[in-house]
Design a protein around this nucleic acid. Sequence first.
DNA 1: TTACCTGCAAAGAGTTTGCAGGTAG
DNA 2: CTACCTGCAAACTCTTTGCAGGTAA
Lengths: 138, 138
Amino acid sequence: MNNNSGFIEKLRSSGLRPTKQRLEICKLLFDRKKTFHFTIGDLSKILKKETNKKISLATIYNTVHSFKKKGYLKEISVDREKSYFDTNTSNHHHFLDISTNELIDLKEEDVDNIKIKKSLPGKKIKSIEVLVKIENNN
Amino acid sequence: MNNNSGFIEKLRSSGLRPTKQRLEICKLLFDRKKTFHFTIGDLSKILKKETNKKISLATIYNTVHSFKKKGYLKEISVDREKSYFDTNTSNHHHFLDISTNELIDLKEEDVDNIKIKKSLPGKKIKSIEVLVKIENNN
DNA sequence: TTACCTGCAAAGAGTTTGCAGGTAG
DNA sequence: CTACCTGCAAACTCTTTGCAGGTAA
């Protein structure tokens, strides 16, 4: 139940002080088996509900962005009004369920290797992101 | 130079009245050979410069959204703060040049057919979108 | 003690809405 | 004449910033 010492280590080794707020956020994000997809708005609501303490929005933004910068979170842009963060930072793609607005991980092996047959001089490929939009059958 | 009668027809047949503002926007967007990628902010600036008339932002939003709804424009979401519209509405993917923030079309044949090996019960695939992020060599 | 962190409120950026007046058909 | 369209300003949503007070080391 209490991974706190692990999180404290993780934070400290990244140069981030293990404050109460950051530990709450760590517990919520990383103390789970399944990938978690969330927007900052979601996260704020869940934190309020689960911890009964208010963590300021500014702090949540700061923390999430620090975690992203440290590579603990991946950002997935789905449309203008929804930017998700993903606790699964491995190389993978996504389903987006249009009917529910839910984001679902695809494992790397669920998508055939993608070959891009065009290249631009002086440029190299940094990443390839596939978003598969799905919807209910009829 | 003046496709106006074509645009008037196009608008009318979509149930949109061919107003001065819409015709200006049509000329800017569709009277060109190459695909055009733009944000609404871009479009507003260009319209101001090229036409010397001010078209209200609200009107530009309305028009672009109508055009999207009618299928004359495609929206491409790249990150939270940039949503591009694309005058190329065919099935295709994109490079995003991180160094310049420029969006570049990939032709359909530039990307191998993508096979998704996973499916979800009751759901069907609506679209597959590939975004290839590129950056300058070293 | 010092550098870093948090919370609040204000400020920004992009987008949407309500409404009065204008225009196409 | 009527329905639709435009422009303006206000309102909204999401995100960022400045700063005073608090906290880790």
